[in-house]
């Protein structure tokens, strides 16, 4: 039986025919849609390398069956840069050396983008301890966590400032 899954993927409407309900969102992105920015680490929801944003929330793409997502809005790392300009979180990761090998980076960035935009941001405020806890679903084996936290705090401040400027 074929299932049709309608997605808004990185802003673009897509109707995807799925011949097998076993396909996870992660495998759909990587193996069938050639969006290989989203990484497969543990494939068990433990490492966070596959983090994407579904309907405004960060989730592990490896623990989500694509067939369940009909009508969802999905954003991956490929959908962040606009008109050739890096997203502020992407830029901050480069500036703060928030990576070494880079494998966990797309997941780290997607997690941070959702965290800054979503309801959690108000709970976290400027507290690095709360931010570290909030980012604990993304593991970096190179140990770049210090730079990652600096990057997220910096991007958050810059995005808030840009918003204020826009409003003024």
């Amino acid at each position: 039986m074929t299932h049709t899954v309608n997605l808004v993927l990185n802003g673009e409407r897509r109707a995807i025919a799925l011949d097998d309900p076993r396909v996870t969102l992660l495998d759909l992105l990587r193996e069938r849609l050639d969006l290989t920015g989203t990484k497969k680490g543990c494939d068990r929801g433990q490492c966070g390398a596959c983090t994407v944003i579904v309907d405004g929330r960060r989730v592990n793409a490896c623990m989500s069956l694509a067939v369940t997502l009909d009508g969802a809005e999905v954003t991956t790392i490929e959908g962040l840069a606009q008109n050739g300009e890096l997203h502020p979180v992407q830029a901050a990761f480069i500036e703060h050396d928030g990576l070494q090998c880079g494998y966990c980076t797309p997941g780290q960035i997607m997690s941070a983008v959702a965290l800054i935009a979503g309801g959690e941001a108000a709970d976290i405020g400027d507290d690095p301890e709360r931010l570290r806890e909030a980012m604990s679903g993304n593991i970096c084996r190179c140990g770049a966590h210090r730079g990652i936290i600096e990057a997220v705090l910096d991007a958050r401040t810059r995005m808030a400032d840009a918003k204020k400027e826009q409003a003024a």
């Binding site: 929801g45 966070g48 983090t51 960060r58 989730v59 959690e120 604990s136 679903g137």
Partner: peptide
């Protein structure tokens, strides 16, 4: 419990 990603799902 778990991580933010898992709690969201």
């Amino acid at each position: 419990g778990a991580s933010a990603q898992l709690r969201n799902a």
